[in-house]
C-alpha cells in the first residue's frame, strides 16, 4: 500500500469543506434530515406523561435516545453518495486523477471532510436536545435521561463510528454508481443495519450495557477500517475515466 501524504489529504479536506459551504442544497439537506429524526425523541421525552416506576422510565427513554444515533447515519449519506460519481458527473474527476493524489488519499480526504460537518451537526443537536431536556422536560423524565449514562456516552462515542459506516457505504455506492441520484438513493440503505440494532435494543433482544456498547464499538470500528480499504480497492480509475472496466494483457 502506498504511503499517505498528509498534505494531499489536507488539500482534499479543505477543498471539500469549501464546496460544502457553497452548495446551499447540501447545507439544507444536512440540516433538514436530522430534524426529521428529532421528532420521535421530542414526542417521547417532552409529550409523554411520566408514568411508571423509575426503572420503567429508565428503559422508556432508551429508545428515543438511541433513535438519535440515526442522525450521524443519515446526515452524511447524501454527501458520501456524491463523492466520486458527483466528481465524475461534473467533469472534475479526470483532472483530479491526473495529479499525484492516490486513491487512498482521495478516499480518506473525502471521508474525513464529510465526517466534520456530520459530527458538528450531530453533537450540536445532542447538546441542544439534552439542554432542552434539562430545562423543559418533566423532572422525572429528565432524571431518567441523565441517569442513562451508558446510553448517553454511547450516543457520543458511537456517532463517529456509525457516521464512518454510513460514509464508507455511501462512497462504495458512489464508486460504482452511474449517476448521483441512484447513488444517493442506494446510499440511504446504509442506515438499515443501525436501525436494526436500535430496534433490537428497543425489543429487549439486545440489552444496552457497557460491555455490549464496547463490543459494538470495536466491531463497527473494524468494519469501518476494513470497508475503507475495500472502497479504495473498488476505485477502478480506468472504469471511472473511460466507463470500461480495466483489462490486463
Amino acid at each position: 500500500m502506498t504511503s499517505l501524504d498528509a498534505t494531499r489529504v489536507r488539500a482534499v479536506v479543505r477543498k471539500e469543506l469549501m464546496e460544502f459551504r457553497r452548495k446551499r442544497t447540501i447545507v439544507v439537506t444536512m440540516a433538514a434530515l436530522p430534524i426529521l429524526f428529532l421528532v420521535e425523541p421530542i414526542v417521547s421525552i417532552f409529550v409523554a406523561a411520566p408514568l411508571g416506576s423509575r426503572s420503567y422510565l429508565d428503559h422508556f427513554v432508551i429508545l428515543p435516545l438511541l433513535y438519535m444515533l440515526l442522525i450521524p447515519v443519515i446526515t452524511p449519506s447524501t454527501l458520501a453518495a456524491f463523492t466520486v460519481v458527483g466528481e465524475r458527473e461534473q467533469g472534475t474527476l479526470e483532472p483530479l486523477l491526473t495529479t499525484p493524489l492516490t486513491t487512498q488519499e482521495l478516499i480518506l480526504g473525502k471521508a474525513a471532510a464529510i465526517m466534520v460537518p456530520t459530527l458538528v451537526m450531530s453533537y450540536s443537536i445532542y447538546v441542544l436536545f439534552l439542554a432542552a431536556v434539562r430545562l423543559f422536560a418533566h423532572p422525572a423524565i429528565a432524571s431518567a435521561v441523565f441517569h442513562n449514562g451508558a446510553v448517553l456516552l454511547a450516543l457520543f462515542l458511537f456517532a463517529p463510528l456509525v457516521a464512518g459506516w454510513s460514509i464508507v457505504v455511501g462512497m462504495a455506492v458512489s464508486v460504482r454508481a452511474s449517476e448521483v441520484r441512484v447513488a444517493q438513493q442506494l446510499g440511504t440503505l446504509a442506515s438499515l443495519p443501525i436501525v436494526g440494532v436500535v430496534f433490537l435494543m428497543a425489543l429487549n433482544v439486545i440489552h444496552p450495557t457497557f460491555e455490549v456498547a464496547l463490543i459494538f464499538a470495536l466491531v463497527i470500528l473494524a468494519i469501518d477500517l476494513r470497508a475503507l480499504r475495500i472502497v479504495s480497492r473498488m476505485f477502478d480509475r480506468e472504469r471511472l475515466v473511460t466507463g470500461t472496466r480495466a483489462t490486463r494483457s
Binding site: R14, K15, E19, T92, P95, T98, T99, P100
Partner: peptide, 26 residues
C-alpha cells in the same frame, strides 16, 4: 494533463481551484 474539458470546481474561485491543485502537487 489538461483534459478536453478543463473540469474546474465552479463554486470555487480561480485562486481556490489553483490552491487545491497546488496542495495536491505538494
Amino acid at each position: 494533463i489538461m483534459p478536453e474539458s478543463p473540469g474546474l470546481y465552479l463554486r470555487l474561485t480561480v485562486t481556490e481551484n489553483l490552491e487545491f491543485f497546488a496542495g495536491l502537487y505538494g
